[in-house]
């Protein structure tokens, strides 16, 4: 159908350090932590950090760990900081390898390389603290203003006036009326979408494709819509 079924995506995911703890005490420590907030951990994907860990050079050990984690409702999806031997053993146990972020703080490049495929788990990854690069605009965006959200989404709580321009590398959300221009996926992300509370836009664009006001079906004008790119064509979807 589409020529690109694989797409990058970023997730927040828990990382568990396994170095320096033995199996029994690790299980107990985890169990204590999980019983405190079971909702938060339910079916959560988890990455094993093998830094400073002895062992884990055999698939059997990973399978055992998977069994323990499954009993605690956790879903292991991969390992990081693995040596070549550990990597092969993990892979045989169905765990992918992720590159560890350079620092504990998430940089865009590191987060991108640490990204896991969205099919890894049906549950969305828990997001404890918001560290996204979204740009939140709570004031009306006035005519003549240009706002760019590099590397992230832009969220406008109020309206975007005619003659104003909002640009994001990711998605665009406008809760009020969009009367100006909205350019999503500015660096080429064709999966970016534009969500609009009331569509009255001069121009909407995703990854270089665009619609001007005249191209928008009258039935969609003044409506709550989302705009997506399907097979290189801009499609306006009603709120349904």
């Amino acid at each position: 159908m589409t020529d690109n079924i694989l797409q990058g995506a970023l997730f927040t995911v828990m990382v568990m350090r396994v170095g320096g703890v033995n199996g029994a005490s690790l299980e107990q420590t985890l169990r204590n932590q999980i019983t405190r907030s079971p909702q938060f951990f339910a079916n959560a994907p988890i990455v094993l950090d093998l830094k400073d860990s002895g062992g884990f050079s055999e698939t059997r050990e990973f399978l055992e760990m998977k069994r323990i984690l499954a009993s605690l409702t956790l879903v292991p999806v991969g390992v990081q900081n693995a040596n070549p031997e550990q990597r092969i053993a993990a892979l045989a146990a169905g765990l992918g390898t992720l590159t560890a972020p350079a620092t504990s703080r998430r940089s865009a490049a590191a987060a991108a390389s640490a990204a896991i495929p969205s099919r890894a788990s049906a549950t969305p990854a828990p997001a404890p603290a918001s560290q996204t690069k979204s740009l939140l605009i709570t004031e009306p965006v006035r005519s003549g203003t240009q706002i760019y959200a590099p590397g992230g989404d832009i969220i406008v709580v109020r309206s975007v006036s005619a003659g104003a321009e909002i640009i994001a590398d990711g998605h665009i959300h406008v809760y009020g009326a969009l009367r100006g221009r909205a350019i999503a996926g500015a660096t080429g992300d064709a999966s970016a979408r534009i969500f609009v509370g009331r569509l009255e836009a001069e121009l909407v664009s995703i990854a270089g494709r665009y619609l001007i006001h005249e191209d928008i079906a009258p039935a969609h004008l003044g409506q709550r819509v989302q705009i997506v790119l399907q097979e290189q064509r801009m499609v306006v979807l009603g709120s349904g």
């Binding site: 006035r142 005519s143 003549g144 203003t145 006036s161 005619a162 003659g163 104003a164």
Partner: peptide, 10 residues
């Protein structure tokens, strides 16, 4: 109205 909008932005 549009010019006023611009001025409000300024």
């Amino acid at each position: 109205v549009r010019d006023s909008d611009r001025i409000i932005g300024l």
